[in-house]
């Protein structure tokens, strides 16, 4: 039993504590089908090497990215969110990337107010030919988020709930 526990802990450590600092950021990326997803394919075909921390969700256009996706990713434990779209003027759907840009500007402000640092949320224009840029952007972002440390929003939510509960209990006790 104890052995199994130890194994489990070891496993956990190897999966989440990949480096000496003990923290491997988890980044969710939304890549548009036509430019950035294809660029990431190109990076693969070119055998470029980059950090394994980013998990890509494919969307047809960066314009499809709903602010809720970003908030949801943070709420479910992402340490960073990256969006990749076509360069301005190059959108496969003419101007979806501009529509996204407007949302991103607003969302940046909102995230800042929530205490989520700017470096945790990034928008990049990466064309289908820019496999190299996929690599540099991902490596750069992983480095920056690693420096910021874990966001642990789910944990913070739980702590907040607990605190609130405590306050309520205190208030009730005072009332009685």
């Amino acid at each position: 039993m104890a052995g199994a526990m130890l194994n489990l802990i070891m496993e956990n450590q190897t999966s989440t504590n990949g480096t000496a600092s003990g923290f491997e950021p988890r980044i969710v990326a939304f890549f548009c089908n036509w430019c950035t997803y294809t660029a990431a394919d190109l990076a693969g075909v070119s055998r470029l090497k980059y950090a394994a921390n980013v998990r890509v969700v494919r969307v047809m256009c960066s314009g499809r990215v709903d602010p809720q996706f970003i908030l949801d990713a943070f709420a479910k434990g992402a340490d960073g969110v990256l969006i990749g779209g076509c360069h301005p003027g190059d959108c496969h759907y003419i101007e979806g990337n501009y529509k996204l840009l407007r949302r991103v500007r607003l969302l940046h402000r909102m995230l800042r107010d929530m205490g989520i640092e700017d470096d945790r949320f990034r928008l990049e224009w990466i064309s289908a030919a820019e496999g190299e840029k996929v690599k540099t952007v991902i490596n750069d972002m992983v480095e920056k988020v690693r420096k910021l440390g874990p966001l642990q929003l789910p944990q913070r939510f739980r702590d907040g709930d607990k605190e609130l509960e405590g306050e309520q209990l205190k208030a009730e006790a005072a009332h009685v």
Binding site: V57, M60, R64, G96
Partner: peptide, 25 residues
């Protein structure tokens, strides 16, 4: 099928086949 309207709909009443909110979430 870009989904830009889907991402912007405040009441989530626009859906996109193959890229439904639920699927992305």
């Amino acid at each position: 099928g870009c989904g830009t309207c889907v991402g912007a709909c405040p009441s989530s009443s626009i859906k996109q086949n193959l890229f439904e909110d639920e699927q992305v979430f």
